[in-house]
Amino acid sequence: MKIKYNRDACQGHNRCYMLAPEVFDVDDEGYAILLIDGDVPEELQEKAQLTVDNCPEFAIEVVED
């Protein structure tokens, strides 16, 4: 499982950072920063899916291998 994050679509709702701080950090203006480059470790996959399903701007996608 890989995660794709679209910074242009992000409006700083911060839902991802709240749900999965291991997967997303936020910058000083509250825009998301994807912390995981490449495969999402298995123990974080459920949380990663939550970030996808709760982003109001559809800025996060799962990319299956």
């Binding site: 700083g12 911060n14 950072y17 709240m18 936020v26 910058d27 000083d28 203006e29 509250g30």
Partner: peptide, 11 residues
């Protein structure tokens, strides 16, 4: 907006 974002960011 950029002026006001930092004080209202999550941290």
């Amino acid at each position: 907006r950029r002026l006001l974002l930092p004080p209202f960011a999550p941290k």
